[in-house]
Each structure stands twice: as C-alpha cells, then as structure tokens.
C-alpha cells in the first residue's frame, strides 16, 4: 500500500455546496414545470386516449381492454366514412386553392404595386378572426333566402341559384369557400416573403438572356419557392385536419351529416353519443394522420438547424 496520500479534494463548506448545486440546477428547475406540464398534459393524455381507444368505454371510461373493438366499430360507421371522405374533399381543395390563390396574389403584389401597404392587410385580416365569426358571416352571406342569392334575384338575375348551404351534395364546398377566404391571405404573405427573399441578380440575368416574364416565373421563381410550398402545405394540412369551429359555425355538420369531419365526429361520439371508445379511436386516427405529415417535417427542420 502506498503511503503517499492522494491529493484530497478541498470540500467547500456544505452550505456553499448546496447553494452552488442549486445555482447550477436553477435553469433546469425553471424549465421543469413547463416540461412536466407538457409531458403530462400532452404525452400522458395522448397515451390515456390511446388506452381508452382499446376499451369499451361509453359514457365513462372503463379500463378493461377490449382489443380493436372500438376501431372495428369506428370503421364500420358510415358516418366515419363520410367524415374522412369530406376531409379528403375539404383538405384537398382547401390546401390546393389556398396555395394557388396565395401564390397568384403574391406574384401580383410583387409587381412593384402602388398601395401594396393597403392591399396586403386587406387580404390577411380574416386570419385574425375567429372561425366562429367567419362561419357566422358566411352562413349569412350564403343564406339562400336572404343572402347572395336573394341579392342576385333583386338585381334581376332570376336564374341565379346558390343553395349550397342547404344542399347536402354541395354543403362541404361552402366550408371550402369560407376556409379559403380565411387562410389564403396568410398563404399570400408566406409566398410574398419567399419572393422578396429571391436574389434580384438571378432574375436580372435571366431577363437579359431574354426569358419572358412567364418563363421566368415558371422556370426560376416558382422552383425557388419550393420550401415555401412545403411550409404552406404543412400548415394548411394541419389546419384542415384540426378544422372544427368553422364547420360547427357554418353548417353544424349538416345538412344531415353532409359536412361531418373527423373533428366533429370525434366530438359528437365522445360527448353527445356516449361512445367514448369510438371517439378516442377517431382521435387516435387524427393524431396518426397529423404525425405522418408533421414528424418528417420537424425531423428535417431540426436536423438542418444542427448542421
């Protein structure tokens, strides 16, 4: 055994040590409540909902597992098929039209327009409104007896017919119109920011080479906006899947179940039809759909920032 003492660490006085350790842990202590809240209220709750979706819960949760019973019942509901078909129609048109219209308006606004400062906020203000307000306004505007149809008749266009709100085959398109009205201005703002970020030198060079304006946009500008298309798609897809308020205010899911969406389906099965397990199963399907879109996007975004 060596007699040479190993250098003894000088211990600070115990009180100081606790203080130092507390100091060092302070940042984590500050972050902890928020992180814990998210872990419980987001991830814990999601797990709970997933668990419920494998039970036979009706009015109240029951905790006995029942396999895929709720999922089988979910997929055998004609109402659920209506809901996902509607989400396909609504989501596809909503995303497509918002992006097309947003890009179009952004390109128009980017032509050295006088009064851009006035026009831009006009295109964007619906985004500040509640979906309930938007729904109420459009419900009135599209009301066949009193709204646009009556106005056109008053002006002598007796052939004009706009009964989409009460027509089960067309009602979903009123949701598209109101949704596009609300979100397309936001798309415009995203594309405009993208356009303003493009290096003017590249465009000048192409113009000198004799490219026409249309070719310039098709071949150079629009391809350069690819990241904006992706962001816009993610945001809109996410909004479409979550859309609930707008449908409730505009059509209430009707006429009949003509404008049922997964979000309204989940709510009514859980809270009014006492089919909690089926409601939970539909929520899980919604979550999986959103994950399929968001997770790859977030993953690539966070990775890019690292490198």
């Amino acid at each position: 055994m060596s007699m040479i003492a190993t250098p003894v660490e000088v211990h600070p006085r115990p009180k100081e040590g606790t203080m130092m350790r507390l100091q060092a842990a302070l940042p984590k202590l500050v972050l902890a409540p928020s992180f814990a809240a998210i872990l419980v209220f987001v991830y814990g709750f999601i797990l709970f909902t997933i668990y419920l979706s494998f039970t036979r819960s009706r009015l109240l949760p029951v905790y006995e597992l029942a396999g895929f019973d709720a999922y089988q019942r979910l997929w055998s509901q004609p109402n659920w098929w209506v809901a996902i078909t509607n989400l396909g129609i609504f989501g596809g048109l909503y995303i497509g039209v918002c992006i097309a219209l947003g890009l179009f308006l952004a390109i128009l606004l980017d032509q050295k327009i006088r009064g851009e400062g006035v026009l831009r906020p006009i295109y964007l203000y619906p985004m500040a409104l509640s979906f309930i307000v938007t729904g109420t306004a459009w419900k009135w505007f599209l009301n066949p007896g009193l709204g646009l149809e009556k106005t056109m008749h008053d002006w002598g266009y007796a052939w004009f017919k706009l009964d989409w709100l009460v027509n089960p085959d067309m009602a979903i398109y009123t949701v598209v119109i109101a949704g596009v009205w609300q979100a397309s201005g936001f798309c415009m703002a995203m594309f405009l920011a993208g356009l303003r970020g493009i290096d003017g030198e590249i465009l000048k060079a192409a113009q000198i080479d004799g490219a026409s304006t249309i070719a310039l946009y098709r071949r150079i500008v629009i391809p350069m906006l690819r990241p904006v298309f992706l962001s816009a798609f993610i945001v809109l897809a996410h909004m479409a899947i979550k859309s609930y308020d707008l449908v409730i205010a505009l059509t209430g899911g009707g006429p009949g179940n003509a404008t049922e969406l997964p979000s309204t389906f989940m709510y009514s099965y859980t809270f009014t039809r006492n089919q909690m397990a089926v409601g939970a199963a539909s929520a899980v399907i919604m979550l999986m759909t959103i994950c399929a879109i968001i997770v790859p996007y977030l993953y690539s975004e966070l990775r890019e920032k690292n490198s």
Binding site: P27, K28, L31, S34, F35, I38, L39, F41, V42, Y43, G44, F45, I46, F48, T49, L52, P61, H238, I241, K242, P262, S263, M266, Y267, T270, M276, G279, A280, S282, A283, V284, M286, L287, I290, I294, V295, L298, L302, N306
Partner: peptide
C-alpha cells in the same frame, strides 16, 4: 443554459404545438 438533451426537450415541446386537441379532450 443548454444541457445534454436540450434538443429532445425542445423537440417534444415543439411537437406539442401540432397535436390535434381531440386527443387530449377526454383526459383533460
């Protein structure tokens, strides 16, 4: 005040922005 795993913490908080709230209604 970064600490090991700060990216995970942030990632988990970020993802919470996007969940459909229908998945938390019943437990909430």
């Amino acid at each position: 005040w970064r600490f090991p795993g700060h990216k995970w913490v942030f990632g988990l908080m970020l993802f919470a922005c996007f969940i459909p709230f229908q998945t938390v209604l019943i437990p909430m």
